[in-house]
């Protein structure tokens, strides 16, 4: 565990907590893509099956359980408890365009052709693009609430910090996982446009509004 990895994990944790607080306090999931949240729940379920086969550390187990519980909880809040506030008219990204290619890719490009390894690989590929329905929703409505922007910023920072972690691990531990690195870079790149808007607008106290 290095400082970049820890900061990345904490940023990821913060993103999820920000999202849950937003939904809970405002009793609304307006502006949030339920489709992205479903994809994240699939990502965690397929990645953390090793909870049942491997014990790594109490930290590792606690974080996995939290990510699983919170992602499933978010889906529950959006599709059941606060269903009436879910903005489904603007949440129209076709997730089969993400699920099918990432599933196929994980069958072809993996470290080992085994069920656990393929599901892990699928979760890595799917995570890299899971935010697209949310970014599509923001671009469709042309704006995002500040709290949604903070959520997206924390979520994007997480994979960016993981890249620094991978550089550190490559130099100091000789460790690298090419699948995680390439997918993580793709994931981070998808946020670049948003990061630019966040820094130039939201941090200056303005609402995130896309140019018409």
């Amino acid at each position: 565990m290095n400082i970049f990895r820890l900061a990345g994990d904490l940023s990821h944790l913060a993103a999820i907590i920000i999202l849950l607080i937003k939904i809970w306090k405002t009793r609304s999931c307006a502006g949030i893509s339920g489709r992205s949240q479903v994809l994240f729940a699939i990502v965690f379920i397929t990645r953390y099956l090793d909870l049942f086969t491997n014990f790594i550390s109490a930290y590792n187990t606690a974080m996995k359980v939290f990510f699983l519980g919170s992602s499933i909880g978010t889906v529950y809040l959006m599709y059941l408890k606060f269903k009436a506030t879910y903005d489904h008219n603007h949440d129209t990204f076709r997730i089969e365009f993400l699920l099918l290619p990432t599933a196929l890719l994980s069958l072809v490009l993996n470290h080992e052709f085994s069920v656990m390894e393929i599901l892990w690989t699928f979760s890595i590929y799917l995570e890299s693009v899971a935010i697209l329905p949310q970014l599509f929703m923001v671009s469709k409505t042309g704006e995002a609430e500040s709290i949604t922007s903070h959520y997206l910023f924390a979520l994007g920072s997480y994979r960016g910090l993981y890249i620094l972690n991978w550089i550190y691990r490559y130099y100091f531990e000789g460790f690298y996982d090419i699948i995680a690195i390439v997918a993580g870079c793709v994931q981070t790149i998808l946020y670049c446009d948003f990061f630019y808007l966040y820094i130039t607008k939201v941090l200056k106290g303005k609402k995130l509004q896309l140019p018409a």
Partner: peptide, 10 residues
């Protein structure tokens, strides 16, 4: 190989 090592990253 990598797949034999426990995955410590989240």
């Amino acid at each position: 190989s990598l797949s034999d090592e426990p995955k410590d990253e989240l």
